[in-house]
Amino acid sequence: MEIILSIVLIFMIIGALFALHARDLLSALISCGIVGYGLVICFLLLKAPDLAIVQIVVETITLIIMIAVVLDSTRHELKKTAIERKWKSLINSKALVNVLITVIIGIVLLYSFRLAITHLNPFGEHTLRMSEAYLYGGADKTGSANLVTGILFDFRGYDTFGEATILFTAAIGVLTVLRIKGRK
């Protein structure tokens, strides 16, 4: 499973990198979609169907909204200004230093991650004391067959209420920003 997960993650990284360098906004958006749908496959492989359903639906809706916005705007990249060109030549002259710094930081990070991971248990084993209480007593205490919903709406009710409030605030913010005529 870890091999499939790493392949999907590599695809997601390639998609994100392509989105940064794409000349066309539409192809950048579609390669952003690779990241979202790859995350869906990761959630399914890690046995989290609740998260996978939410992710696939939200990803689809955001992609639809963004494509509708992009199709109405200027799709292709505008010409670069003189300042940007100057910056680019400056960066190119220091390319060797940049690559060297990146490689050194990458090696240090990989080494420290390896040190941290060797002391941990394998993924999914050795649950914590708190999550054990949720896992084995959650269904009896909440009466909900789906443990995730039981935790979301019973043990963590405040959190869910906060999430709903965030959506409410986002809708109000969009309505306020996109208002042309002011209120009398």
Binding site: T142, S144, G150, D154, A164, V174
Partner: peptide, 25 residues
């Protein structure tokens, strides 16, 4: 499961209306 289905229905209405309001805006 007590009030959990009621919470689910209310959150569902809230999320649907919020997303629809955003795209209509």
């Amino acid at each position: 499961a007590g009030v959990i289905p009621l919470y689910n229905i209310l959150v569902g209405i809230e999320v649907a209306a919020a997303l629809f309001t955003i795209i209509l805006a």
